[in-house]
Amino acid sequence: MQRVNMIMAESPGLITICLLGYLLSAECTVFLDHENANKILNRPKRYNSGKLEEFVQGNLERECMEEKCSFEEAREVFENTERTTEFWKQYVDGDQCESNPCLNGGSCKDDINSYECWCPFGFEGKNCELDVTCNIKNGRCEQFCKNSADNKVVCSCTEGYRLAENQKSCEPAVPFPCGRVSVSQTSKLTRAETVFPDVDYVNSTEAETILDNITQSTQSFNDFTRVVGGEDAKPGQFPWQVVLNGKVDAFCGGSIVNEKWIVTAAHCVETGVKITVVAGEHNIEETEHTEQKRNVIRIIPHHNYNAAINKYNHDIALLELDEPLVLNSYVTPICIADKEYTNIFLKFGSGYVSGWGRVFHKGRSALVLQYLRVPLVDRATCLRSTKFTIYNNMFCAGFHEGGRDSCQGDSGGPHVTEVEGTSFLTGIISWGEECAMKGKYGIYTKVSRYVNWIKEKTKLT
């Protein structure tokens, strides 16, 4: 034993070699072989497995989906700052455009905790909710729209109204504003409101030439003092309507412009014939205590009207009353817009006519005020429907199939267009061939041609 100890002390290297040989010859039971080890760690190889990531292109799944990435790591994937920024906006807080917040056709661009709407022409605001041009839906104005110097929408209202708090709607500024039905039992019968379409306001006024200088022999019209197929109006439903009495009662109609003036057809009036105007009328054979009678003290036909040349060209006249009318729910003026808007309103496509005229061709006159909704007829169809001249200051309205029309005794009465609950004068009943005849239409004086003249002559002093 002493000898062994001496050998170990003198030859430590020998001992180490012996131990190493023993270990190498022993069977290893701690580690699995290569094949079995792979069965336990069965993990798919990654895209760049075996390579240094710093030297390969980034992978979106590896960089940002398996674990949260930084902007720089995302930049490695896209290799483009702009594309990385677009991805980053949604990656950080989701897609803010998912709810489609942009209105009126706006395009949404996502941002971090926010979004941006790219608005089409005519709109602005956070969600493109603000109209900035009158060309689109009248700028959301209830009545009139004008573009300011910086191309912003400025709404306005006709006389007797003021802008509401929203700067879009119009509200009454006087007790009985024009064009409004205020009798409670008839307010439910107000005709369907007309909503502004998209309009090209630059070209809204037709490029028409008034044929002022045409000389033409007097034409022989049949029954051209021209509501057939209409309905009984309720008291106060058309408070701007008046009836004219002269040699015979209810020979023509008219509309209240203001307390002192009536507008009617020029062919209705004769110099030297006494005319009485009755406002607030409903049943011409009954006294309903809503009527107001006034005498006409002055007749002003349009300066281009000449019955000797043509009885229905420039067929418009103004009547001055001896005493002002007292405005109330049964006696209310009709609204008159400017030339541009009167023309736009007419193009809405349908209007209402009213009167006490004959209820059928050569038949009896109506006792109760009649009204009828009539569609506008395109000019080409209008011209083809008659052998008589249709001037540019006239328009056609009615039904091709016949059966409904204005008729004798309705002449001078109103053709009105309702705009968001307020009625505007767009025409004056003038003439036609018979009444409600198939293929024939009622012919009306186009008020847009005469609004400046009306307003100039009827100013209240």
Rank of each mutant, 00 (worst) to 15 (best):
I7Q: 12
M8C: 14
A9M: 06
S11M: 14
I15D: 02
Y22L: 06
F31E: 15
A37C: 04
Y47V: 14
S49K: 10
N59H: 10
R62P: 13
E66Q: 07
S70A: 14
E79K: 15
N80G: 13
T81I: 08
E82C: 03
T85R: 06
T85S: 06
K89G: 14
C97K: 01
L103C: 03
S107G: 04
K109Q: 10
D110A: 15
I112P: 05
C117T: 00
C119W: 00
P120C: 02
F123L: 04
F123N: 03
G125T: 00
E129K: 02
E129F: 01
C134F: 03
I136C: 03
R140W: 11
C141I: 01
N147C: 06
D150H: 10
S156F: 10
E159F: 06
L163F: 01
A164Y: 03
A164D: 06
N166G: 04
N166C: 02
Q167H: 13
T186Y: 12
L189N: 13
T190H: 13
R191H: 09
T194M: 14
F196S: 14
D200T: 07
V202N: 12
E208L: 12
T215S: 11
V227D: 15
V227R: 11
E231M: 12
K234W: 11
Q237Y: 11
W240S: 00
V243E: 03
K247N: 12
T264A: 06
H267F: 02
T271D: 05
A279H: 00
A279R: 00
E286H: 10
E286L: 11
T287L: 14
K293M: 05
K293Q: 10
I299M: 10
A308H: 09
K311S: 06
H314T: 02
E320T: 01
E323V: 14
L325R: 01
L327W: 12
A337R: 01
T342E: 04
N343V: 03
L346Y: 05
F348H: 08
S350T: 14
Y352V: 07
W356P: 03
R358T: 13
F360I: 15
H361L: 11
S365M: 10
A366N: 15
Q370K: 09
R373Q: 14
F388W: 10
I390G: 09
N393T: 13
C396W: 01
C407A: 04
G409V: 07
G413L: 06
H415E: 00
E418Q: 12
S423V: 08
I428W: 04
E434A: 14
C435Q: 03
M437T: 14
Y441N: 03
Y444E: 00
T445C: 03
V447F: 01
I454G: 00
T458H: 02
T461S: 14
